[in-house]
Design a protein around this nucleic acid. Sequence first.
DNA 1: GATTTATCTTTACACCGTAAAGATACCGAT
DNA 2: ATCGGTATCTTTACGGTGTAAAGATAAATC
Lengths: 241, 241
Amino acid sequence: MTRKPATTRVRTRSDANNNVAPARTARKRGASRPSGAGEAAPYHHGALRGALLEAAERVLERDGLAGLTLRAVAREAGVSHAAPTHHFGDLTGLVSELAAVGYRQFSAAMTAAAAAGTSLTEKAMARAKAYVAYAQARPGMYSLMFRNERIDMTRPSLHEAASVSFQGLANSAGAGGEALAALSLDQAAVIARNWSLVHGFTMLLLDGRLKDILHRLPEGTTPEQLLGAMMRAAVMRPPGA
Amino acid sequence: MTRKPATTRVRTRSDANNNVAPARTARKRGASRPSGAGEAAPYHHGALRGALLEAAERVLERDGLAGLTLRAVAREAGVSHAAPTHHFGDLTGLVSELAAVGYRQFSAAMTAAAAAGTSLTEKAMARAKAYVAYAQARPGMYSLMFRNERIDMTRPSLHEAASVSFQGLANSAGAGGEALAALSLDQAAVIARNWSLVHGFTMLLLDGRLKDILHRLPEGTTPEQLLGAMMRAAVMRPPGA
DNA sequence: GATTTATCTTTACACCGTAAAGATACCGAT
DNA sequence: ATCGGTATCTTTACGGTGTAAAGATAAATC
């Protein structure tokens, strides 16, 4: 939206069309795209989509959610501002695909963390810490994934990636094996409770709502310590108990 | 941002300047402003600020967070698009003041709910239900209040309104009386835990992340029932216990 | 090799935030 | 009562954004 003060705006090719001869055909196939060797995709085909997603991730980490615009992503990728439209249709489309990428990263981090612990409670704690750690490492991505305003959950790839994540969370939260069908109120309560607890803590932490509490704690207490103590604390303990 | 499909755009006076003679001086003082009788504010002075806040609340509830723009609020209030600038300086300014209004509504709802219950756990449960109920009744307002992107917590009025809310939450969560200074890790854990639990549940519910779980429950189970069961459930109960 | 098609660029438009300048009406001092 | 000052509101202007539509270019297919 507004001004976007710094960022220096590297002035790519398609930026403010220098009205001279086009001078394209300079880079033939395989000239750009520094990633791997020459895979199947032959430059003019298929490569931009992935490049745009990587550019979007970069923009998101650099400029935050507010800076994540279609045109900024196009600039970052070095293409014209309308190029992303063809691949994602929409800003919502691009952001949704980016969120799907995030859900896959998130799932991977969670399963990796769960493999570390030995006992069940250790595993659960490791997962919770990995959950919060992911959100702290990639706050923009986490916000994207867990808010509806800019993504469209009905997109197949996003829906699937998110479902995998949620299924992993539910399984780890207490619903034994492959609980896909019905749930008792108590089972659902355990899942919702653990998820709400860690998600709420994450959101409050990211949005700075726990700053006051953390400042009143002994010097140098980390959010992770608070998280650990919190998950051990009794339920709704009345004051003075 | 984008298109804003419906809403019909009522075409107020200041909308797309009809290039004829101005024809102002039609409404003298006290002609508009349908709210109360003739209070102290004499139209050209002081009244617009409040009117803009009310207009903003209306726009937020009607068009959601995405529709809450400076110009939309100005249209809703029937003034030129640049009028809000003088009173709030900034979009962030207006949104922050609106969030302050929300925090005051929120605090009032919480204290009213706490007065209802008799026992301590009853009070706590009533407060939690009021918390979720407020967010469900005013999802846009709640999102505004608990996210940083569009508000500026350093604004004095917002900071104070939010502090009052948070203090109320902390007091109700277990930290006895006027616990302002230091906190032990256990005290902080109780506060953070209760707050995280209800905030996380609220966010997940508003963003539709609990839809799958709710669908797997017995027909007609309400979110409130899940909330109640959740707050009674055991902590990190291992599967098959 | 010609045509079709997918991909990318240009151009255009409405909306947005915000700065700056102009118009209007209130206010206090004389 | 009038006059200057000031607060309030409107106009105008500019760059940014999303997105639609048309033009250009290269790949693909026959």
